[in-house]
Amino acid sequence: MITGDQLQLRVAAIRDISPTLRLVRFENAGDGPLPPSATGAHLQVVLQGAQKEIRNAYSLISKPGSRDAYEIIVRRVPESRGGSAYIHEQLKTGDLLTTSWPGNLFAPQRSARKHIMVAGGIGITPFLSYVADFAGKGIDYELHLCCREEEKDSFAPWLPEPDKVFVHWDADGHRLDIPALLLRQPANSHLYVCGPDFLTNDVLEAAETGGWPDNHVHCERFGNALSGGEAFRAVLQRSGKEIEVGEHESLLEAIEREGVEVPCLCRGGACGVCLTSVLDGEPEHRDHYLGKAERAGGKHIMPCVSRAKSGLLVLDL
């Protein structure tokens, strides 16, 4: 398997590793080995929900280079728009799914002297592949996991070097002191953060204040929780369609529901691939891609996460 863009996978195993965490193992339903998985990579999974098709991106936790199977861990989220609930309630062994090839927006910097990872809860998943890559190779790293105390051991099976893993939770003596962590790190360290926005923002701010060059700081944000909001309407000018974007779906999902294709990759407002021109109306930008001037200009929108302030958007689609 050398080129392609879609995979047909079979659910080979499902295992609950905690009351809210479910591990899913996929194998190739087609011929031959899978494309090699990658450090920090994700898979875009298409789920056939009862009402609509759901597309979510999940980090691959498999050892980088794995070709026999891919594994993901999915947390059950109370406010789930469907993906998490579907995987926890409906997905079963033997099911066939369509996914993307692995994509990577969060690769480690190979030239780094030291890797420092900060994870918030399920945000640890991309780092499980980092650790699988680094362990045993003499690569210097530290993983800091911030989570609820009762979950502090949930990921232990994927962490072969426990002396490099530090778990923090919300109790005196156990909280992560981010500025202190960033203070004495050797030159050519790289810092990675994945977790809820408040943690990511704290880390980014501490890094800036602490004199870290911004190109040594990398984050992957959870996109899905961001995409809901008030319903609005969108006109797809070139397709001649007018669509309703519901409270619990993203603009991109609504567009796809109408059968209009938009190239996309991360579905989390980071990669810039789904960039769409706005002909009329005022976007509510929620992405991490557009610059300040581009946001203020209002001529473009990332439909995977952003919505409308104006009640109606006219798009060049």
Binding site: M1, I2, T3, G4, D5, P35, A38, W101, P102, G103, N104, L265, C271, G272, V273
Partner: peptide
């Protein structure tokens, strides 16, 4: 920068 695995 956005080149994808499997799509040379």
């Amino acid at each position: 920068l956005m080149l994808r695995q499997g799509q040379p």
